[in-house]
């Protein structure tokens, strides 16, 4: 039987180092590791590049805490309007922000985790998003070449895991998590429930345990 991947939150937090690129799943904190993020903050982690759909909020109840505590030097996201701290730090020159269309962000992460050199998308053609990017015409239609994104660590959130790290997500909390689980060197999953290996029907597994390195129940 495979060894259990369940570790304590503080053990998992030690895997993160200053200056790392970190992916975090979620959409407005739904499907984000909102508890583990506090361990990340507590560990003193700083100067990270954060790749996430959005920047959470400024209520200190989720991933936005990393921004509010000034632990992020660069944010790659599709939306940051719900966390006013982003604009404040951006205008003060403390935070670099790269905005990526949401569907493109998902595909760039998928490319990073699935061995693809990029994706061709019509999204962003004729807008500032296209600036500096290669346009490729396929069968008469223009597409932007969008390149892969990878991270040192992905911190994802699932509903349920078995001890091997097979994951099940719930409802709208799936979002970016399955792609991020494949696109980082180290994958940490915050989960609500851990069950013994064999309890999750293989057909119900949404992220295979081989992609997950550590499971933290919080």
């Amino acid at each position: 039987m495979a060894k259990s991947k369940v570790v304590s939150p503080s053990e998992a937090a030690k895997l993160l180092r200053d200056g790392m690129t970190v992916m975090m799943g979620g959409f407005t904190n739904v499907g984000s590791a909102n508890k583990f993020v506090l361990e990340m903050v507590k560990s003193g982690l700083k100067d990270i590049t954060l790749i996430s759909n959005d920047a959470g909020n400024d209520k200190f109840d989720g991933i936005g805490t990393l921004i509010c505590q000034k632990r992020v030097k660069k944010l790659i996201a599709s939306h940051a309007g719900l966390n006013p701290q982003v604009a404040v730090q951006m205008n003060a020159g403390e935070l670099e922000v790269e905005l990526v269309p949401q569907g493109t962000l998902a595909e760039r992460i998928r490319c990073g985790g699935t061995g693809l050199g990029g994706v061709l998308t019509p999204t962003g053609i004729g807008t500032v998003v296209a600036e500096g990017k290669q346009i490729i015409n396929v069968n008469g239609k223009d597409y932007l070449l969008e390149t892969p994104l990878r991270a040192d660590v992905a911190v994802i959130k699932a509903w349920k895991a078995d001890e091997f790290g097979n994951l099940v997500y719930r409802r709208a909390a799936r979002n970016f998590n399955p792609m991020m689980a494949m696109a980082a060197d180290i994958v940490i999953a915050e989960v609500e429930e851990v069950v013994p290996v064999g309890e999750i029907d293989p057909d119900m597994v949404m992220t295979p345990g081989v992609c997950v390195d550590y499971v933290v129940k919080m």
Partner: peptide, 11 residues
């Protein structure tokens, strides 16, 4: 003035 980001709008 306003820097919310495009979210899914462009797609």
């Amino acid at each position: 003035k306003m820097v919310p980001g495009m979210g899914g709008g462009m797609d």
